[in-house]
């Protein structure tokens, strides 16, 4: 594995997105943040500061998710379709280096977008006169980790299937992963052994994104236990390593026609 070559591939992704209209997403984020928080803080009976924090962090997650999905699902297929992969793989670039480069490139872009959106959000909180808890940064880190796990899932799926299927399955992974506790309850409720087994399999395969939902703690109790700060990081590392391994192994065997 050569880090220089991985970095070169990552740089292509970064340049592509920075030079495209995707950066407009940040402007849309700002408009969405202001409108959504203003509307919901007026119609909701909850404390406006809680509503704004909840919507602000939720919007960072949704926009990050969109970015990862829309860019991620075509990350590999576009290279094959346009045949640019032929020129890349005819150089001394290993297939796993290509996958890791693509992964790091999209992670870096997501990080830049996440940080810019987070800064916009913090400035907005200051402008609204709402106190900023340091735990907001932890909640944002957990959101980012969720996105990175999703990127690794997208890469694993797109090494195995078409962009459409990758998109659908990734959304499925995300939605089911965010409802892991409900799935666990379903296991207890279901009587049929086959269904029970099926739900258990789903529960074990799909990453439990609920580990990363520290946003609720920040909004409601303004505290996150140190164990809840670091455990998700460990989980994220394990999930990412697993999905990247699947992506690299399946791409290694892919017949690039």
């Amino acid at each position: 594995m050569n880090l220089k070559r991985i970095n070169t591939i990552a740089r292509i992704n970064y340049l592509e997105i920075i030079r495209s209209r995707t950066v407009l997403l940040l402007l849309i984020y700002l408009v969405f943040l202001v409108l959504a928080t203003q509307i919901f803080s007026r119609i909701s009976i909850a404390e406006p500061s809680k509503i704004i924090t909840d919507i602000g962090l939720g919007t960072i997650e949704i926009f990050g998710l969109f970015l990862a999905l829309f860019i991620g699902i075509t990350l590999i297929s576009k290279e094959i379709e346009k045949k640019s992969i032929y020129t890349l793989l005819s150089k001394p670039l290993k297939r796993h280096e290509f996958i890791l480069g693509k992964f790091l490139g999209l992670c870096f872009v997501s990080l830049v977008f996440n940080l810019v959106m987070f800064i916009i959000f913090i400035l907005y909180l200051y402008a609204m006169g709402i106190g900023v808890s340091p735990y907001i940064a932890v909640a944002n880190l957990h959101i980012y980790l969720k996105i990175v796990i999703l990127i690794s899932i997208i890469l694993a799926l797109s090494s195995l299937s078409s962009p459409v299927l990758t998109g659908l399955l990734s959304i499925g992974f995300y939605l089911i992963g965010n409802s892991a506790s409900t799935i666990k309850e379903l296991v207890l409720l279901s009587d049929a052994p086959e269904l029970n087994l099926f739900i258990r399999i789903i529960y074990f395969i799909i990453p439990n994104f609920e580990y990363f939902n520290s946003k609720n703690n920040v909004v409601h109790i303004e505290f996150i236990h140190s164990l809840d700060i670091f455990t998700p990081v460990l989980f994220a590392i394990l999930y990412i390593a697993l999905f990247l391994m699947i992506a690299c192994l399946s791409f290694e065997k892919k017949d690039i026609k």
Partner: peptide, 9 residues
């Protein structure tokens, strides 16, 4: 390669 494509950006 035949009909090469290079990143247009």
């Amino acid at each position: 390669p035949e009909l090469p494509y290079f990143y247009d950006f």
